[in-house]
Design a protein around this nucleic acid. Structure first.
Lengths: 381, 381
DNA sequence: TTGTATGCGTTATCAA
DNA sequence: TTGATAACGCATACAA
C-alpha cells in the first residue's frame, strides 16, 4: 500500500512547478494562494522530502559516526548519552558502530564511515595502531573530521580523561591508609589511557622504597579479572590492597574475593577506577575514581561542532592540531572498600556491614589543565 | 586539504567514460587494460563512491533505525548487541535513536525516521499510545516496516518476552518457599509487558486465600525504587518477600534494605526480573528471571530481514500481521536472595555470606509458544 | 568492450 | 512571484 510521493507528484497535483514546491518547503517566495494549495496536497499525501536527495544536493552533514569498542559498558553508554543529548540539541544524529573489541572491525568501521558523507566521527579509541593511521589519512582526505575520545594523539583533536592524575591521587589516598604490599591489576600498555597512564599515576604514588607494588595483567573482562584474582589468592601472597585499573576489573576481583570468603576491606582492601554507578550498590561500596563519561560525550559533541564551524569559515585549511587542551573535571569518591590498616577491628566490622566512615568519605574535585608525563622505568619489585 | 573525487574525475583521469568506471565498481564488463588503469587511479586518489548518491539511485536500504527508550540500561545494551551482531553479518547498519524515556522524543524520532529511506525500524517500545499510531501509519505509508521489540501489538509484527510465564514461574518458586506476606514493586500498567503481564503472572501464582500480595508502583529508576523501599521499611509492615518487576528496581530495594541493616535473605527475601549480569555480583546474588535480551536483538534482525525479503517478492502487498508468534527461550535462574522460611538460621547465615545452596540453584529452560492472558480483577488485599 | 544519454529527488540559478 | 533548467554523484539501458 501507500505509494511514496516525491516533489514532482506534489507539484503536479498542486498545479505548480516543482521549484515552487521546493521554495515552499524551504521558506522562499510563495503567494498565499499557492501556499495553501501546496499545503493542502502535502497534508493529504503525507509527503515529506527525501533526505537522501537533499543530502546529495546540499551536502549538509547532519550525522556523526560514533565508533565504540563495545556497547555493554557503563563508560560507553554514559558517553553515548552525553553525545546524544548534545547532538540532539543541535539537530544532529548519531550513527553508532560497535566494534566488539575487534581491531579488524574497528578498521572496517572507520573505512566504511569514510565513504559516507558524515559531519564527523567520534572515536572512542582504546589503542591506535599503524593500521589505523592509514584510515585516518583516508578520513582526512575525505574531509571528515575525526575526534578521539579517551585517548590522546599528537595531531588529531582529542578529549582525554585525567587518568594519570586520578591514579596518582587515588594512590596517594591508599598510601595514606598505610598499605605496603600492593597488587595492581591492569591492562596492556598499548592502551595508553587505561593501560599506561593509570599505571604511571599509581606508580608515581608508590615510588618509595618501603612499598611493594606488583603488577598483573588482564583484559577488560570481568571474567578475566575474576580468574586472575583467584590465581593471586591461591598464590598465598600477603597483599593488603588490590588496585584495579577499572571498576569492571575490580568487580571481578570482588567476586573472587567474596567467593573465597576473604572479607573486604577487613582482610584486604580493593579499589577500582571509573565510577560505574552500580559499584556503589555493593557492600561495602567500591573505592574508586569517578570519571565524567557523560560530560565527555557532551564536550565531544561541542568540540566537533566547533571544528565543523571553524572549518566552514577558514574553508580549505583544516586545523587539526590540538589548540587548547580540553580539560575534564575529575570527581574523586573514596568510599569504603579500601580500609586503613590502623583501624580497630570493630571499625572494620562496621565498614563491612555497609556503614560509611566519615574519614573515608572524601569527595573533592579538581581541574586538570595539562597532562603530566612520566617516563617508564622497569616494573617495581 | 584533500579534494574529494567523484566518479567523473576518475573517468577523466583514467581516460574512459564514467559509465566504464561505474561498471568497474560494480563488477561489469571491463577489459584487462582499462581495469588496471582505473584501479591505479582509484588507488592513488583514494576514491570511493558516494553512498548518498548510490542510495538515491538504487534505493537500496541498508540502515535500520533503532528506537530505544534509554541507553544506560543493561536490557537495552544487550539487545543492541544482538541486533548489531546480526545486522552486521548481513552488511547492514544501525541508526540508534535514544529517547531518554520521553514520549515526545519517541514520537519525534519515529517521525524523523519516517522521512529517511530506511530498511526498517526496530522499536524497543514501552507503551504505545494513540499519538504513536499516527506515526505508525505514516511509516506504513512510507513503506518502511516497523518491528516491535518487547511489547505485543494487534497488527504490527513484534517480538515479546515471556513476561507472564516468567513471573508465574518465579511466583510458583516463591510460593514453594512458604512466603505469605508479599510486597510487589511494579511499574504502571500502560507498559503492557513489564507493568501488566509480569504483575498478572505473579498474581496468578499467589491467587490463594492465605497469601497476601500488596502492590506498589514506582518508575524504572533505581533511585525511585530505593525511595519507595525506604517508605515501605518505615511503614513497619511484616513482609517476608519483596517481589520487584525489574532487576533495577530490585537493586534499588537492595540498597535501601542494606542501608537499613535489614539482611537479605535472613530478614527479608528479594527477587528481581531480567537477569542483569551484575546482580550476580551481589552477595547474596539476586534471585531473578533471566530474559534473553541479546537473542531477542538477533531475532529482531532476522525477522526484519525476513519481512524485507518477503516484501520484495510479493511487492506491493505488505503483510504486517503476526504470522507465527515468535517465541523466546526463558532461562530461570533462582539463586539466593530469596530464602525459604523453613531454613535454619545457620543455613540462612550461610546464604548471606554468599554461599550457594543447591536447593536454591535450579536452572531450567522452557519454550513459550503462546502468550497467556488473564483478566485483571481488582488488586488483591 | 565502451560510451552516450537519461533518471533518481532535491535545490539553486536565472529568466520570465 | 513563478517556472524551466541545470546541477549533485552515481547506475544503467541502449547504441556503437
Amino acid at each position: 500500500m501507500g505509494k511514496t510521493y516525491n516533489i514532482n507528484d506534489i507539484a503536479l497535483m498542486a498545479g505548480v512547478a516543482k521549484s515552487t514546491v521546493s521554495r515552499y518547503l524551504n521558506g522562499g517566495y510563495v503567494s498565499e494562494k499557492t501556499r495553501l494549495q501546496i499545503e493542502n496536497i502535502i497534508r493529504t499525501t503525507g509527503f515529506s522530502p527525501n533526505q537522501t536527495a537533499q543530502n546529495l544536493k546540499s551536502k549538509q552533514r547532519k550525522v556523526v559516526g560514533v565508533v565504540i569498542p563495545r556497547i555493554d559498558s557503563y563508560a560507553v553508554s554514559r558517553t553515548l548519552m552525553g553525545l546524544d543529548d548534545a547532538l540532539n540539541a543541535v539537530n544532529m544524529q548519531m550513527l553508532v558502530i560497535n566494534c566488539s573489541q575487534s581491531i579488524d572491525r574497528e578498521i572496517e568501521a572507520l573505512d566504511n564511515l569514510s565513504k559516507q558523507k558524515l559531519a564527523g566521527i567520534v572515536w572512542l579509541a582504546s589503542a591506535i595502531s599503524k593500521r589505523h593511521h592509514k584510515i585516518i589519512n583516508q578520513l582526512e582526505s575525505a574531509n571528515i573530521p575525526i575526534l578521539l575520545l579517551g585517548q590522546t594523539h599528537p595531531t588529531l583533536p582529542y578529549i582525554a580523561y585525567p587518568d594519570f592524575d586520578g591514579a596518582f591521587s587515588l594512590g596517594q589516598y591508599c598510601k595514606s591508609l598505610g598499605h605496603k604490599e600492593i597488587a595492581y591489576l591492569g591492562v596492556e600498555e598499548k592502551d595508553l589511557a587505561v593501560g599506561l597512564n593509570r599505571w604511571l599515576g599509581f606508580k608515581k604514588s608508590f615510588d618509595e622504597a618501603d612499598i611493594s607494588l606488583t603488577r598483573y595483567f588482564c583484559s577488560f573482562s570481568l571474567q578475566d579479572a575474576y580468574e586472575l584474582t583467584k590465581k593471586i589468592i591461591n598464590a598465598q601472597s600477603n597483599y593488603t590492597l588490590l588496585l584495579c585499573a577499572t571498576d569492571n576489573i575490580a568487580l571481578g576481583a570482588y567476586k573472587a574475593l567474596s567467593e573465597a570468603k576473604i572479607r573486604i576491606p577487613n582482610d584486604i582492601s580493593l579499589t577500582g577506577f571509573g565510577g560505574y554507578d552500580f559499584t556503589q550498590m555493593l557492600h561495602p561500596s567500591l573505592t574508586t575514581i569517578e570519571l565524567p563519561f557523560y560530560e565527555a560525550g557532551q564536550i565531544a559533541a561541542f568540540k566537533l561542532r566547533y571544528i565543523l564551524l571553524s572549518q566552514d569559515k577558514t574553508i580549505g585549511q583544516t586545523t587539526n592540531k590540538q589548540e587548547n587542551d580540553p580539560y575534564l573535571q575529575l570527581k574523586k569518591t573514596f568510599t569504603n572498600s579500601a580500609a586503613a590498616l590502623y583501624l580497630s577491628s570493630a571499625e572494620k566490622e562496621n565498614i563491612s556491614h555497609g556503614c560509611q566512615l566519615d574519614s573515608h568519605q572524601l569527595c573533592t574535585t579538581f581541574t586538570l589543565k595539562k597532562r603530566q608525563s612520566v617516563d617508564i622505568s622497569d616494573k617495581k619489585k
